[in-house]
Design a protein around this nucleic acid. Structure first.
Lengths: 353, 353
DNA sequence: ATGAAAGCGCTAACAT
DNA sequence: ATGTTAGCGCTTTCAT
């Protein structure tokens, strides 16, 4: 009877790639001697099925290697149990961590993940959003989106969405961000160590988050009645970019003793530039990063940085989104925040006399 | 007439999250005054439509904000234009690069990507495969799979698949791998530099690829009539693991002057351990990695490593898979190989006298 | 506790 | 060059 004992569906396996169509509910129903709807109920864990019928259905399903067809289900229910994830670059350690957090949440809640890279290109991003919407994703997680506020709002007309580290006036657009205090931690730390001549290496151009972080640095210095930081912006956000930016900083003002960086990648590049000039870290120059990517603890010297709970950021965002998607009425909660803290390591020290 | 000028579908936007259903082909057809099938043809770029009708259909579609419904299409065609991607950990730089390569190919060929992490856990992996098959993916890209050969074969009964860096006897299972010579490059390099006491830090346990690489190292030493390498295995494949492994190596034999590592992460950890002991790289110990992840060029000192074209690896795998999937008859090609080469940087040097 | 029929949005097979 | 009909695999009424 059951020619294929395991999970193998019946089908030829002769050399080439002709595959048999997967079994359907109808076949399971026939085999179990029940109606299609009963099989459906069993698959959806409807408690109103007799234990014995449930078992025989499950048995038949196993024997046939049956698997519910997600597209079919999506078609009729209008929900795909799928989330779209838009990031600028999966090879960036920050986004990789984010994805991991989102995945954890997705797995917990039984969602799948469709991943798209945007390369910070708005056209690519729009195409990706269209693609994702075509797949009937139930929600969208967007990080470092290059879309304007009104474009984002327009997307929110069609689907639930959560933005990472970006506030949006539209109340339907959910947000998960780092705490407001985080942007000040790095500068405060350097000042506490006695640094009075401070540089800043900035993040992506025209990014609101980047602007915010730079402003944070400025404000902290102002609060302590110090002169403005020397700011290096427009450099690529990469190790190489940090290298160039640091060289620029030192060329303009060789008296700088402390540098705050938009992120850890830049900071690592900056450290290399300092060392390449024969200066020592932290004796001559102290450097602070942002994110606390895995590698930073193992840089040489280990990098002092503002630790962002990246997994949590992704996890919270996804949970917020899923909750909002599944709530029929008004969303339970529309914003969430994760707490950051400074991790002091070897790249910073007291200013030398 | 067109109340919504832009791409906005008609629908309420009042505070809460009630979204209107997206427009269907029927509505587009009605608006354009044609049949559904004609709309279908336009959407599928069927050349057999008059230019004027095509345009009016496109116009109507734009006005309504129409987007083809992928699940519906998948249901009827049996193809989802979606690839499943199974990796062990997206936060591992190698896999992130792989994903990027796969994504490039997917985008080129108009496929979407469903991403799953396995954490090298076979149970998670089986669950993920089931999930992916439920989504009717057209193909599966698997890297560092923990499934047995026969389990893989069983999956291949249902769907096309390509394995990264793993050969499989089943001819239906496609493969993309690094070239056979790559595993020898590191050891050859150390030997050429005069090293005679060589250690090896191994990769994941029970991984065939890891075993192969270790064997490569052994064979090279044997070929040069040198004694067996001292092998450290069973350590976590991470910076921390490399640190511990290197310490173990040095504890067992303090005379080691050259170390070959399964990958760059381990190598970076190993470098840190050497430096922590007050030894210098490469003066006292030379270290070679594998992969050439982005960070390696910026390690301190920069890491000599076997450069694997990771993007290409992912790209080639995806292309192989898509080609095979779309070919109705026998697959065009079932294996592909990418060429690796040694990148000499600061972590290796001639053995000191 | 279970079943029959309708239909989700689309394309395939055949018209015309 | 365009339209009609049927049906993909599933869930949703509404029965029983």
């Amino acid at each position: 009877m059951a020619r294929n004992a395991g999970q193998t569906p019946a089908g030829s396996r002769s050399g080439s790639a002709n595959r048999s169509k997967p079994p359907t509910m109808r076949q399971v129903a026939a085999k179990a001697g029940v109606s299609v709807k009963t099989v459906s109920r069993v698959m959806n864990r409807d408690p109103a099925v007799k234990e014995s019928t449930r078992e025989s259905v499950l048995e038949a399903a196993r024997a046939l290697g049956y698997r519910p067809n997600a597209p079919a289900r999506a078609l009729v229910t209008g929900r795909s149990k799928t989330l779209g994830l838009l990031i600028s670059d999966i090879e960036n350690y920050f986004f990789a961590g984010l994805v991991r957090g989102v995945q954890t949440a997705a797995e917990e809640r039984d969602y799948s993940l469709l991943l798209c890279n945007t390369d910070e290109n708005p056209d690519t991003e729009i195409r990706s959003v269209d693609l994702l919407l075509g797949h009937m994703v139930d929600g969208l997680v967007m990080s470092s989106s290059r879309l304007q506020d009104d474009q984002v709002s327009r997307v929110a007309d069609s689907v639930g969405m959560v933005l990472i580290n970006r506030f949006h006036p539209d109340p339907r657009v959910l947000t998960t961000s780092i705490d407001a205090e985080a942007v000040n931690l790095a500068a405060e730390h350097l000042i506490a160590l006695g640094h009075r001549s401070i540089g800043y290496i900035g993040g992506p151009m025209r990014s609101r988050a980047a602007w915010l972080r730079e402003e944070g640095c400025r404000k902290v210095l102002a609060k302590h009645k110090m002169r403005e930081p020397l700011v290096a912006t427009g450099f690529p956000v990469s190790i190489e970019g940090g290298y160039s930016a640091m060289n620029w900083l030192l060329d303009v003002d060789s008296g700088i003793t402390g540098v705050v960086c938009w992120n850890d990648m830049l900071a690592i590049g900056a450290m290399r530039a300092v060392q390449a000039r024969g200066l020592r870290i932290p004796d001559d120059v102290s450097i602070v990063g942002f994110d606390d990517i895995h590698f930073s603890a193992h840089a040489n010297p280990p990098l002092t940085t503002v630790s962002v709970p990246i997994h949590r950021l992704g996890y919270e965002a996804a949970i917020l989104l899923i909750d909002a998607t599944e709530a029929e009425g008004a969303p339970i909660k529309s914003r969430s925040t994760v707490q950051c803290h400074l991790v002091t390591r070897g790249s910073t020290g007291p200013v030398s006399q």
